[in-house]
Simulated scan of single mutants.
Amino acid sequence: MLFPRLSLVAAFALLAQTAQGAPEAEPEVLWLRYELPPLYITEGPMQGRGVLDQALGRLLPRLKGLRHRIVTVPPKRLEASLRDLPNACAFGMLRNAERETFLTFSIPFPIHSAPGLMVREADLPRLSALRDAKGRLSLQGWLNDPDLKLGQAEGRAYGAAVDDLVAALPARRVERVSSQNPALNLLRMLERGRVDGVLMLPFEPRALAATHGVKLNGLRLLPLVEQPTARQGHVACSRSELGAEVIKRANVVLAEPQMQTGYSSGSRPSDRP
């Protein structure tokens, strides 16, 4: 299947609206995603075989009476597209207070992937007092140092506890990157000393090392005290009549035991049916 880029999103929305105007046409739902291997793989020989790609592939045939189109967008445009397009949804979204103002969420399902803070190994000695017996870092304690600057991908959510801590920071303390591959840019900024720590999911450094030859020597990803090991993912849709209907139907499917077994970023595509 060909996954179009953001430049075609508006065209898809127009087509969907036209189709909905026809008496017998099924309404079209746009499922937005971006490159985030191994959860979503949007290009290359493994295209469409990410962990959440496959879970979405099991969900969509169960949502009868709807047409579905999967659209790839840059990370910085995901939330804006969900705001602007009344027929837009996303699979695997985290729920937070800001998103609740413009999105409707399904019941949760577990995603076994918790964010950590990537730091320079040279800084580890002065962080020892902030780490517990399991080696987890207190993000609150780290953020209490007014001289430290945090890097994160713009538009990304990391879980309610982490998001709330970051939201309380003054703008000058956070470097938000909105490029096509923000994780890659953030790692380079960390290496060059432009930021002091970067929020990342555990699979992102490995993926960047494999796909872009990033050298991880001298960097360390620390798990966080504030973040549980499993996050709650959701189907999220625009606040519209169609969005509410999609969520209603998705809830029936997501309540089934096989959809509640959890999705792990460490799983290979072949690990799940």
Rank of each mutant, 00 (worst) to 15 (best):
A122G: 11
A236L: 03
L130F: 08
V235E: 01
K215M: 03
L184Y: 13
S238L: 07
A209M: 00
A210K: 13
F109E: 09
A236C: 00
R120L: 13
L143T: 06
S106T: 01
A168V: 01
K134M: 08
E121Y: 06
L139G: 09
P110R: 08
L117P: 04
R176F: 02
S128F: 05
A210P: 05
L199W: 01
A209L: 01
T101I: 06
S138F: 00
G197Y: 13
A171G: 01
D196G: 03
R220Y: 10
R156C: 07
D145S: 14
S240V: 14
N144I: 01
P115R: 01
R192S: 15
R172F: 04
L169E: 02
D145Y: 03
L143C: 05
D163H: 05
A207I: 15
P125M: 04
A133W: 10
A129P: 02
Q232R: 15
A129I: 07
R136P: 00
A209G: 04
R192N: 14
R120G: 09
N181T: 13
S179D: 10
L143K: 02
A209F: 06
G151S: 10
P108N: 13
A171S: 15
A236F: 05
V119F: 07
E154P: 08
A114G: 04
A168T: 03
V166F: 08
W142P: 04
A230L: 10
G213Q: 11
P202L: 07
M200V: 05
Q152E: 13
V177K: 02
P182F: 07
R220I: 03
E191P: 00
R131K: 15
D123Q: 06
P182V: 12
L208S: 03
R176P: 06
D145V: 06
S238Q: 15
Y158E: 06
A114S: 14
M118E: 12
A160T: 14
L221H: 07
R194G: 10
T211W: 08
E175C: 08
V235P: 12
R120W: 09
P125D: 09
A207L: 08
G213I: 05
V174T: 12
R156E: 14
W142G: 01
E191S: 05
L187A: 07
M189V: 03
